[in-house]
């Protein structure tokens, strides 16, 4: 196992990035996984609902979203998660995000993400497609990636 950068903390299978989902306990590496179905541009508009607590690049009331795909739940450095989220041990991908975003408090009782959820399936798909764009190469995330790489 290796990691894609110190910041994303993504467990992936070394040298088999394109096939890693099949060999890493079901945790797809964000760098290699196929983009989830959905319209990222439309998802960015849905993301407005998230910005009360979240930012792509900064930890706020909620953790930052850069590098979300493939990340293990409750592991963004410097963010104070609820006990429930720390214990959840979920790898965020299109499937787990679709499940969680439908009703966060029902999915993970005790989460501090006290948000009713995105009930419309298409809006969730689009939102997830947008979240998937927040990788190390995205404009919104470059500064964070560079900073964290510098910090080692």
């Amino acid at each position: 196992m290796t990691r894609i950068g110190p910041w994303f903390r993504v467990p992936v299978c070394a040298a088999v990035l394109s096939l890693a989902a099949a060999g890493c306990g079901g945790a797809p590496p964000f760098a290699a996984a196929a983009p989830p179905p959905g319209d990222p541009a439309a998802g960015k508009r849905v993301y407005v609902r998230c910005i009360g607590c979240h930012s792509p690049a900064r930890n706020r009331t909620g953790p930052r979203h850069c590098g979300l795909f493939g990340r293990l739940s409750g592991t963004v450095p410097g963010f104070d998660y609820s006990a429930a989220m720390k214990k959840a041990a979920i790898t965020w991908n299109a499937e787990t995000l679709d499940w969680f975003l439908l009703d966060p408090m029902e999915a993970i009782p005790g989460t501090s993400m006290t948000f009713a959820g995105v009930k419309d399936a298409r809006e969730r798909r689009n939102l997830i497609a947008y979240l998937a764009t927040l990788d190390a190469d995205s404009q919104a995330c470059r500064s964070v990636a560079a900073k964290l790489r510098k910090e080692g």
Binding site: V48, I51, G52, T61, F115, A116
Partner: peptide, 16 residues
């Protein structure tokens, strides 16, 4: 931006 976000946060929390 923060105020816009706050509106959404309350909209998302109030039903809960």
């Amino acid at each position: 931006g923060l105020e816009r976000g706050a509106v959404s946060a309350y909209v998302g929390a109030i039903p809960l």
